[in-house]
Lab assay of single mutants.
Amino acid sequence: MQFKLIINGKTLKGEITIEAVDAAEAEKFFKQYANDNGIDGEWTYDDATKTFTVTE
């Protein structure tokens, strides 16, 4: 399945899409990606669109 991350950071904005087995695997990848890029904010997930959003 495809999952999307929308980044609304103070210094980094954009979107990335990955293939993952389930939402838990996608969330783990996205949170590591955000951590690696210094993004720390509020997370939301929309199951209907398979979209995670992080907002700083």
Rank of each mutant, 00 (worst) to 15 (best):
V54E: 00
K28T: 06
K10N: 03
E56Y: 13
Y45G: 00
E42D: 14
T11L: 08
I18R: 13
K10G: 06
N37W: 10
A34F: 03
G38P: 01
W43R: 01
V21A: 05
G14N: 07
D46K: 06
D46H: 09
I39K: 02
L5T: 01
M1Y: 07
F3R: 00
I39Q: 11
K13S: 11
E19N: 06
Y33H: 10
F3A: 01
A20M: 07
E27C: 06
D46S: 15
E42A: 15
E25Q: 15
T49Y: 15
L12V: 15
I16T: 11
E19F: 15
E27I: 10
A23P: 13
D22K: 04
E27H: 09
T53C: 03
V21Y: 11
T17D: 09
D47S: 09
A26I: 01
Q32I: 11
E56A: 14
I39F: 15
A26G: 11
G38N: 04
Q2I: 10
I6D: 03
V21T: 14
Q2C: 02
Y45N: 01
T55R: 14
T53W: 12
T11Y: 12
K10S: 12
D22M: 06
E56Q: 11
K28W: 06
K28Y: 09
I16Y: 04
I7E: 01
G38H: 10
N35K: 12
K10R: 08
K50V: 08
K28S: 15
E15D: 15
Y33R: 02
V54Q: 01
T11E: 06
F3G: 00
T55F: 14
T53D: 02
D22S: 08
F30I: 02
I6E: 10
G9A: 10
I16P: 01
I18V: 06
M1W: 04
N8H: 13
T51G: 03
G38C: 04
I6W: 04
T44R: 13
L5S: 01
I16E: 03
T55H: 11
E27S: 04
N8Q: 10
A48Q: 14
F3W: 14
D36C: 03
E42P: 04
D40I: 10
T49G: 08
N35I: 09
T55M: 13
K4H: 06
T44Q: 14
Y45C: 01
E27K: 06
V54Y: 02
T53F: 09
I7W: 10
D47P: 10
T51F: 06
N37M: 14
D40F: 13
K50C: 03
D36T: 05
W43A: 01
T44K: 15
A23E: 09
A23V: 13
F30K: 00
G41S: 02
A20W: 04
E27D: 05
A48F: 11
I16S: 10
A34W: 06
E19M: 14
M1D: 12
A34S: 10
A24D: 14
W43M: 12
L5P: 00
I18Q: 13
E15P: 04
K4T: 07
G38E: 11
E27A: 07
N37L: 08
T49R: 09
I16V: 02
I18G: 03
F29E: 09
K4G: 08
T53Y: 10
G14A: 10
A48T: 10
I7M: 09
F52N: 00
N35P: 02
F52E: 00
Y45L: 03
A34Y: 08
A23N: 15
I39N: 02
G14Y: 05
I39C: 02
F30M: 08
D36S: 13
I7D: 01
K28E: 11
N37G: 10
T17H: 15
D36A: 13
A34C: 02
T17Q: 07
E42N: 02
E15I: 11
F3K: 00
A26W: 00
N37T: 12
T17G: 09
A24Q: 05
D40A: 12
I18D: 02
G9T: 15
Y45H: 02
E56W: 11
T11F: 06
T49P: 02
K10E: 04
T55G: 03
D40L: 15
D40T: 08
E56M: 05
T49A: 12
N35M: 13
T49S: 07
F29Y: 05
E25C: 02
N8G: 11
T51E: 06
K4I: 11
V54T: 06
G38Q: 08
I39W: 09
L12W: 07
T44F: 05
F29H: 08
A34T: 15
I7K: 01
N35C: 04
I6Y: 14
K4P: 00
E19H: 11
N35Y: 11
E19A: 06
E19S: 08
F30N: 00
T49V: 15
G9E: 11
N37R: 11
A23S: 12
K4L: 07
F52I: 02
A48K: 14
L5Q: 00
W43Q: 01
F29I: 09
M1V: 06
G41E: 01
L5V: 04
K13R: 08
D46Q: 10
K50P: 01
T44E: 09
L12A: 03
I18A: 13
L5D: 00
T11N: 07
M1R: 09
V54W: 01
K28H: 07
T49W: 07
E19D: 15
K13E: 05
E42Q: 07
E25I: 10
E15F: 10
K10C: 03
I7H: 06
F52L: 02
G41C: 01
K28C: 03
Q32H: 15
D36L: 14
F30C: 02
G9P: 05
E15Y: 14
W43S: 01
L5F: 15
E42Y: 15
G14T: 08
I16A: 12
T55P: 01
D47E: 13
T53E: 05
D47L: 06
G14W: 10
D47Y: 08
T53N: 08
T11M: 07
T11S: 10
A24G: 10
L12K: 14
E25L: 07
E25S: 11
F52V: 01
T44H: 14
A26C: 02
K4F: 09
E25T: 15
E25W: 12
L5K: 00
A34E: 01
F29R: 10
A24N: 12
E19V: 02
T49F: 07
K50L: 10
A34H: 01
G38Y: 08
D47G: 07
G41Q: 02
L5W: 03
I18L: 12
E25Y: 11
I7Q: 02
K31V: 11
T55W: 15
F52Y: 15
T55E: 07
F3H: 07
A24I: 12
A23C: 07
F3D: 00
I18N: 07
T44G: 06
N8I: 05
D47T: 13
V21N: 09
T17S: 15
T11H: 13
K4Y: 15
N37Q: 14
N35G: 14
Q2D: 15
I39T: 04
G38S: 05
D47F: 05
Q2M: 15
W43H: 01
Q32D: 12
T49E: 14
T53H: 10
T51V: 13
F30E: 00
E42R: 12
G14P: 07
A23H: 15
A20Y: 09
Q2R: 10
M1H: 11
G9C: 02
Y33A: 06
I18T: 13
T49M: 12
A23I: 12
A48C: 06
Y45M: 04
F52K: 00
A26L: 00
Q32N: 11
I16N: 15
T53A: 11
G41M: 02
M1A: 03
Y33L: 02
E27M: 06
Y33P: 00
F3V: 04
T17C: 02
E42I: 09
T17R: 08
F29L: 07
K31D: 02
F52C: 01
G41N: 01
F29T: 07
D22N: 07
F52S: 01
K10Q: 04
T17M: 12
V21P: 06
I6H: 14
W43C: 01
